[in-house]
């Protein structure tokens, strides 16, 4: 069952699209459902998304199965995704995957027995200049080496935020679109409306042709 909080977040997202276009909210809504269901998407959660957005369940399954960031089987508490596309491979991504497999004691695509980590190889994450790199939960970790990997895995095992994470808070693998401004730390404190308001000049009437 989706929590009330999840349902209201889905409704808030749907309101950001033009009237009658709430179908557009299906992807962000699936992120909300995924977060609400422990990091993956059981069928019941997809059914509820369909209900909230008034879409056929089959449509929601179709969307969920199209995109690689929706997990239709359970994943570990931490999702480790190493970019393995050629530009990263040129700079040691293959060795990095091998290193992570060894440290975690699993193969790519598997989850550790304690349910802490799932290791995946993913496609280009747009950080080719800082390879090898991995997205772990919400954060990109770049220019990875064995020492950094040790530090990251240790911190995550303790439930702490690794020192060089992009976010200073632990969000697990929840997408920030699922969060309210407050949760995400969006703040406009101290920002005033711009003062010197410009007055629009009346455009010159176009010359008769």
């Amino acid at each position: 069952m989706l929590s009330d909080q999840a349902v209201s977040r889905i409704e808030a997202i749907a309101a950001q699209y033009p009237k009658g276009r709430s179908k557009s909210a299906v992807v962000p809504a699936l992120y909300v459902a995924q977060r609400d269901s422990g990091g993956w998407l059981p069928r019941e959660a997809m059914d509820e998304v369909a209900e909230v957005l008034e879409l056929p369940a089959s449509h929601v399954y179709g969307v969920a199965s199209f995109y690689s960031m929706f997990y239709r089987t359970p994943v570990g508490k931490n999702v480790v995704q190493v970019c393995g596309t050629s530009p990263c491979r040129l700079r040691g991504a293959g060795e990095m995957i091998e290193c992570l497999e060894k440290k975690l004691g699993i193969k790519t695509g598997e989850t550790t027995a304690d349910g802490e980590f799932t290791l995946m190889e993913v496609e280009c994450l747009a950080a080719c200049d800082k390879a090898p790199m991995a997205q772990i939960n919400a954060d990109y970790y770049e220019n990875l080496d064995e020492a950094k990997v040790d530090e990251i895995l240790d911190a995550l095992r303790k439930g702490e935020v690794p020192s060089f994470a992009e976010f200073d808070r632990y969000f697990g693998n929840a997408h920030p679109v699922t969060m309210t401004d407050e949760e995400l730390g969006i703040s406009v404190e101290g920002i005033q409306r711009a003062e010197n308001v410009v007055v629009k000049k009346q455009p010159e009437p176009a010359a008769a042709e």
């Binding site: 992807v27 992120y31 995109y67 960031m69 994450l125 747009a126 997205q135 919400a138 954060d139 990109y140 992009e166 976010f167 969000f171 997408h175 920030p176 679109v177 401004d181 995400l184 730390g185 969006i186 703040s187 406009v188 920002i191």
Partner: peptide
């Protein structure tokens, strides 16, 4: 793109500002 978690947060903050 979905993977840009941080980029999304930065852009949302910028838009709010």
């Amino acid at each position: 793109r979905g993977e840009f978690f941080k980029g999304y947060a930065v852009l949302r903050q910028a838009l709010a500002e």
